[in-house]
Design a protein around this nucleic acid. Structure first.
Length: 557
RNA sequence: GCGCCUGUAGCUCAGUGGAUUAGAGCAUCGGCCUCCGGAGCCGAGGGUCGGAGGUUCGAAUCCUCUCAGGCGCGCCA
């Protein structure tokens, strides 16, 4: 095809054309140009509201501006039509030649052409999961893990430098309770009537730990009151819990964390006392009723919060202040906390902490992951960690599979409630959208095998005549592929990986439908080769998107 | 009582920086296997977008009120 400008890939091409046009109209080339995917096909393949954004500044009706822009576009080689619509949108459709050229680019360059570098090397810290090391991860943590992992992958692929962090609450009462629970069960195993702590952990795993302790330590702690062996048993138990958590994470098959931050270390390094000193220095700390308070009501909170209790002990909040200060000190460009929604009441005080340290809060984002309501046989199943009635992450993986669970978790936006029915999801049926998507990939693979047997080569698109792809379904499929980078970009900017999941289902649907209507491999070699190229590009994007979600793309199913 | 989240088709959920007839999957009903994988495809029915006001040329989308569900409101972690 004739090229009047240096074609790159869809969005960049359009922006560059629009920029040239705006400059020719004497409008600053800095003008932000937004490109969007129209809701309806009749609005074109792609559209821009840029004229509407400029209306105020230029004091002209957006529709007129849009018309001026359209009239001034010199390079129309890639557009079949350009139209002004509605209040001032400019809608474009692409020429077939442009679609073929883009398809070829995907086949030849793959990933390289699908990425928008929006991060530009900025450093992002994402903290997620951070479950207390007092038991195995459960299904709620699994959702946080899936979302956090996918978000990190997405940001990495969008040009950010990402640190994945897990904050370990290894100090304080919960950990002591873990130790006390194990201690009590251990004594009971030795036939001693030991009182079980009121708020202790009652799960089966505690019994297992006690048995393990007995095997390892024999009768070393027999009849010893807890306070005499508290440190040893607690330390031993919590370390094993942490190992268990790490094992769960690896079972779930997500990226490992790049850093594990220990709450206890924050105390040992005096980071907690220093952080409070800093706040005191800034005038946000005062004493009242024998306790030490943080003046969070100066900022976003409705009341001040205690950091040191009247008995001299730090509160949990104190170490969280130190932890967030440590995050700030490490100089990230963006800091993201992913929390279970049950902690949402905590947001104002942490925001207040960030502000008190002088941080621009617009670079800090707390993402809430809503509760998972678990159903078994269609009946709600109440989980309680203390009572020991909960479904663990590893059970979920055994029952439904890691890919399946991750995909389900990512088919909802993170702050909407999620119903997770073990029976429905473990059935290998169309209830599980992940199979639908993976099936498209496996199917393409099997087409390739078939082609291979027939001696048709798949990848060398440059040799083929892609213009043989003239069916509407083929052109639509190419357009769907073209739009993928925009989906990624939108998902990354909004921190919403679930958008990729929806795109994938749509793409898979288009592919399955196409597959049924047209035969890829026929007696016409050239046509077959062109269709194989289309399959190949589809496969590239399926794999790419699935891998960002942390889901595998099996060749066979 | 206060705060946050949610309320869209029978069910589970997208869509919420305002563009015309509101989308998908499941379920229901009806079709498609001499043919590259039927975990698939094609088609049909099904919604006053919880309710009421308001802003607007135009609202599922923005504002106010209201109802329902969930979760939080400790010198617990």
């Amino acid at each position: 095809m004739k090229r009047c400008l240096n074609l790159v890939f869809m969005k960049k091409d359009i922006i560059s054309i629009l920029r040239i046009t705006l400059t020719s109209l004497g409008i600053s080339p800095d003008q932000h140009i937004e490109i969007e995917i129209p809701r309806e096909q009749t609005f074109g393949d792609i559209s821009t509201p840029v004229a509407m954004g400029m209306a105020k500044g230029l004091k002209k009706p957006p529709k007129n501006i849009a018309e001026e822009i359209v009239a001034s576009i010199k390079d129309k080689t890639i557009f079949e039509t350009i139209a002004v619509a509605g209040p001032g949108f400019i809608n474009f459709t692409f020429t077939k030649e442009y679609l073929y050229a883009s398809l070829q680019r995907i086949c030849e360059q793959g990933k390289a052409v699908l990425r928008e570098n929006i991060g530009n090397g900025m450093r992002v810290l994402v903290e997620y999961v951070s479950a207390n090391p007092t038991g195995p991860l459960h299904i709620g943590h699994a959702r946080g893990a899936a979302v956090g992992n996918a978000l990190c992958n997405l940001l990495e692929e969008s040009g950010f430098r990402v640190e994945r962090e897990y904050y370990i609450n290894d100090a304080g009462r919960q950990i002591t309770l873990l130790g006390a629970s194990v201690h009590a069960r251990y004594q009971q195993l030795l036939g001693i009537t030991a009182e079980f702590p009121d708020e202790g952990y009652r799960g089966q795993y505690i019994d297992d730990e006690a048995a393990a302790l007995l095997r390892q330590a024999q009768e070393k702690y027999k009849n010893l009151p807890f306070h005499e062996c508290e440190h040893e048993i607690t330390e031993w138990s919590y370390k094993r819990m942490l190992d268990l958590i790490k094992e769960d994470i690896s079972t779930f098959d997500i990226q490992n964390f790049s850093s594990w931050i220990s709450e206890k270390k924050l105390y040992e390094n005096r980071a907690v006392s220093q952080a409070i000193q800093t706040l005191k220095h800034n005038g946000y700390i005062y004493e009242k009723d024998g306790a030490v308070w943080f003046r969070s009501s100066e900022f976003e909170d409705d009341k001040d919060r205690v950091v040191i209790k009247s008995d001299g002990e730090y509160t949990y909040f104190a170490s969280d202040i130190a932890y967030h200060k440590a995050k700030l000190d490490r100089k990230f460009d963006i800091i993201i906390d992913i929390w279970g929604a049950d902690h949402h009441g905590y947001i104002p005080r942490i925001n207040s902490v960030m502000k008190a340290f002088g941080y621009d809060i617009s670079h800090f984002r707390i993402i809430l992951v809503q509760m998972v309501s678990l159903l078994k046989h269609g009946i709600p199943f109440q989980m309680s960690k203390r009572a020991g009635t909960f479904i663990t992450l590893s059970e979920v993986v055994n029952l439904v599979g890691a890919d399946n669970a991750k995909f389900i978790f990512l088919t909802r936006k993170s702050d909407s409630h999620l119903e997770f029915d073990i029976d429905v999801i473990s059935s290998q049926s169309a209830d599980n959208p992940v199979y639908y998507v993976q099936y498209a990939h496996a199917r393409i693979n099997s087409i390739f095998e078939h082609a291979h047997k027939k001696g048709i080569r798949v990848h060398d698109t440059s040799e083929h005549d892609l213009s043989l792809l003239s069916a509407k379904e083929e052109l639509d499929l190419i357009k769907k592929l073209l739009v993928y980078p925009l989906i990624l970009e939108g998902a990354a900017r909004a921190f919403e990986p679930h958008r990729i999941t929806f795109y994938l289902q749509e793409l898979a649907r288009m592919f399955h439908s196409y597959y049924h209507k047209y035969k890829v491999i026929t007696d016409q070699k050239e046509l077959s080769a062109a269709r194989l190229a289309l399959c190949y590009a589809t496969k590239i994007i399926l794999i790419d998107a699935l891998s960002i979600l942390g889901v595998t793309a099996p060749d066979k199913m």
